[in-house]
Computed example of a mutant assay.
Amino acid sequence: MGNLTIIALTCLDPHLHTPMYFFLCNLSFLDISSTSVTLPKLLDILLRNGQRISAGGCFTQVYFFVCLTVEEFFIISVMGYDRYVAVCHPLHYNVIMNQRLCLLLAIGSWMLGFLEPVTHTILLSHFSYCGSNEINHFFCDTSALLKLSCTSTSNMDHLNYIMSGLVMVPTFLFTLTSYVYIISTILKIRSAEGRRKAFSTCSSHLIVVLLLYGTLTFLYVRPISMQSMEQNKLFALMYNVIIPLFNPIIYTLKNKQVKEAIRKQLPRIAREMKKSLREV
């Protein structure tokens, strides 16, 4: 509901038709999508004891989970670049972050997200699985599937490192570089009020960056042989539930523009809902 609210407000309020909220809208849609990949099955297990999943369904879940995880790295990195331009080049912000560039960055992020996990999923689906067919997880996570495999996991270990090298490390370094320039620019601002305002535009994104990279580094960058399934399930639950829940809270808690948009748009949304209910 929090992510849907951000998407609805961004569409309805003209004051939120800016690059920052366009990318935030993408992140909210991404959070809704990622939870939709894993949590319905968890609810099925808890409420109906639906503990079966087909092989095709399992590998489909793996593909979309990895796809949306990779996409999140790119979107978070793009949002960091947006904040860099806003703080370091405020007078040229509207020229640099024009509509065409924003669309290209968003489309490119989604395309790379959908392409990257293809090799990962194909390799995983060609492994041999023997013995128990019980997946020790609440969704088809790569680490849980590899525990059931008779095939050597060294290839998947290498692929995970390659994926980190091609996606996680460059996006992290790009975001880190953006924040080095941002902090350097903020420190040059003479007034304390000016520094506070400049930092407040980036603080929400910085918290999300720390949560995302901290969780996923612990979850996937370690060698498979060193991974504990109980720890993996705990951190996977945090990534799948806690972060998508906190993202809209983090971005709206101290955001005056969003609070003002909620104050203006909620009565309108309530009227539309009442109208729809009468028609039904």
Rank of each mutant, 00 (worst) to 15 (best):
S154I: 13
R271G: 03
S132P: 13
V95K: 14
Y213M: 03
V169M: 08
Q257M: 13
M273A: 12
S128K: 12
V118P: 09
I7M: 15
K274M: 13
N160M: 14
S276E: 12
R263Q: 13
H137E: 09
A198E: 01
K197H: 10
C67S: 13
I243D: 02
I107S: 06
P223W: 00
I183H: 00
E230K: 13
S54Y: 13
T38L: 09
T69E: 11
M238S: 09
C102R: 12
I76F: 09
D13Y: 00
N247P: 01
N232E: 08
Y161I: 06
K254A: 07
I249S: 02
S225M: 05
S54G: 13
L124K: 08
L46W: 13
A55P: 02
G56E: 15
I183N: 01
H205N: 10
F235M: 10
P40E: 15
D44N: 10
I53C: 05
M79H: 00
I243M: 00
D82G: 07
M163E: 11
L210T: 09
I76S: 06
I182N: 01
F138M: 14
R268Y: 00
I249Q: 02
Y251S: 05
V66W: 01
G113C: 11
C202D: 07
I224N: 08
T119F: 12
M156V: 06
P267I: 04
V221Y: 08
V258I: 15
M156C: 06
M229L: 14
N155G: 08
L91F: 06
D141L: 13
L103I: 08
E279T: 11
Q265L: 04
L145S: 04
Q61N: 09
M156A: 05
M163R: 13
N255W: 02
G2M: 08
A192L: 15
H15G: 11
H120M: 13
I32G: 03
I183R: 00
Y239D: 03
L43E: 02
H158C: 05
K254F: 14
L104T: 04
